[in-house]
Design a binder for these strands. Structure first.
Lengths: 199, 199
DNA sequence: GCGTCATCGAACCGATAGGTACCATCTAGG
DNA sequence: CCTAGATGGTACCTATCGGTTCGATGACGC
């Protein structure tokens, strides 16, 4: 039965629904781990609809990744905003949020970084690079507000902790990396803002 | 012409040659980015030979990853051994070696982590987890020799820096992460071994 | 020297992938 | 109401992939 009896028939809503459902499936199974056919049946969507909205599987993948990056950055940004004005508290909030993410049963590492490891295509790599850039900007902002003498440097070091914690959480015990990375991050922040003490 | 006129015909040597050449290709193109057919032509090896030695493409992949893990760990271990007895110098040597790696034109991130992101298969994940474990043991050893009160914790934090630097180097500027991660690592080490100063 | 074994090259196979075409059917807007 | 557009379902196409098989040929151990 084409067009089930009580359906909504709103292209934008359809597109958003596909995007949301496809995000989870592609993350869980991997970009090449699920075909368009199965994807469609799981989404409850016909191939024609999917291809009309996204043109190609790569188009869908890119849209999924863009949306995911937006969501992640917004999520971390909210955690920071909810942490008040103290830069150290904001930094701690970032890693607390990460730890919370790591403990989700579906956690499989950073979707963007994973995607770039799978599709060596420039488009995907560009999205991932941009994602890391946004993450970096967030961390650099915290470093700057904390009065670090070189906020860009400290921001990059913090980004390494974020990404490293994510990798370790994905491949080893996911219960501790966020917390332990948080401690490391706070140590780096303290050392940077008290230049007389160390190194 | 089967069996070219001046060839060596030594199974072990053939297997090793396949392994070595396949490692580079699979790393550069991705595990699913190159098929067995092209792999064989590039290797100058027939399909039958490849399948007789490795059984299946997954078998080849696993052998490649195992060998790569061995090589990487040995390489880092040598860098540590060459750095003398000072734990801080050993730690610095690790990140210097990493930085050197990042600057190779063919650098594409950690082959093991990339592989795990591509093949969600348990066998590959296990190899990657073991690889991280070996890396962790190395770092924990340095932490212990430095007199850190909780070498396991510091080791895991250092591992995060290693993996994070690798991710950042793969997706952003590869010229600085090693050096900057090295500085962060030394800061963590100093903070851990001087508990009175911070945190 | 002779048989065994390793190897190449090529043909071949079934499965599956991404993508297209067509049509029946339903909603949405006027 | 009635048309236009969105959708589901299905069949289909072509390319490619992993893997198998076979015969020809040469190296190597005995």
């Amino acid at each position: 039965m084409p067009v089930p009896k009580g359906s909504t028939l709103d292209p934008r809503r359809t597109r958003a629904a596909i995007l949301r459902a496809a995000t989870a499936l592609l993350y869980e199974r991997g970009l090449d781990g699920i075909g368009v056919a199965e994807l469609c049946t799981r989404l409850g969507v016909s191939k024609e609809t999917l291809y009309r909205h996204f043109g190609t599987k790569d188009g869908l993948v890119e849209a999924v990744l863009e949306a995911r990056s937006d969501r992640v950055i917004a999520w971390v940004g909210q955690a920071v905003a909810a942490a008040g004005d103290d830069p150290a508290a904001q930094l701690a909030a970032v890693f607390d949020a990460l730890q919370q993410w790591y403990e989700e049963p579906a956690f499989r590492g950073c979707a963007l970084v994973n995607a770039a490891a799978q599709h060596h295509v420039p488009a995907v790599r560009a999205i991932t690079t941009r994602h890391l850039g946004r993450h970096l900007a967030l961390l650099t902002g915290i470093a700057a507000r904390a009065g670090a003498p070189d906020p860009d440097l400290l921001g990059r070091q913090l980004l390494m902790l974020v990404e490293g914690a994510t990798v370790v959480a994905a491949h080893r015990d996911p219960r501790v990396p966020g917390t332990e990375a948080r401690a490391a991050a706070l140590t780096l922040l303290a050392a940077a803002t008290r230049p007389g003490d160390l190194a």
